[in-house]
């Protein structure tokens, strides 16, 4: 498994764990109140720190174990895999934007729209990284 594929696995698991925790523990009872926005902001801080921390520590550990792999430049197959993944993530991103427009027109609360935006980004990221992992596993 290449260094970049390992990094993708770490990103995928970090996203699942961090935002899994976020959406499971978010206080949905206050989503329609102004405090709901504060809760989003407050919970995004540990989520961000967790993702950055986990990715930094694990990528450093993998790079120390196999520095040669970590220094290899991205080649054409990997660039194509990244383009395919990004292309596939475009669709959930567009759907999420439309869902947000719908939410604005229907006067959904600010915290509700924020959570919808976060969910959009998270789903798009999971699709992007997941698709790239699929292509890495398949060979292309």
């Amino acid at each position: 498994m290449s260094f970049r594929e390992k990094m993708h696995w770490i990103a995928f698991v970090a996203l699942l764990l961090a935002f899994g925790w976020y959406f499971l523990t978010y206080p949905w009872s206050i989503v329609h109140t102004p405090e709901g926005v504060g809760a989003v902001a407050g919970m995004l801080v540990p989520v961000t720190i967790f993702i950055i921390g986990l990715m930094t520590v694990l990528s450093a550990a993998i790079a120390i174990r196999s520095p040669k792999d970590a220094n290899i430049k991205e080649d054409e197959r990997e660039k194509n895999i990244h383009l395919k993944g990004t292309h596939m993530a475009y669709y959930p991103l567009v759907l999420g934007v439309w869902a947000n427009l719908f939410a604005i027109f229907h006067h959904i609360s600010a915290a509700g729209r924020l959570n919808l935006l976060i969910a959009t980004v998270v789903i798009a990221e999971l699709v992007r990284v997941g698709a790239q992992l699929y292509y890495y596993r398949r060979g292309y």
Partner: peptide
């Protein structure tokens, strides 16, 4: 060639069509 070992493996197995340059 300037590609990863995994890319050579994918080309050998007929899973990846390399660019003309590669």
């Amino acid at each position: 060639v300037g590609v990863t070992r995994q890319t050579i493996a994918a080309i050998e197995q007929g899973k990846y069509s390399p660019s003309l340059e590669v």
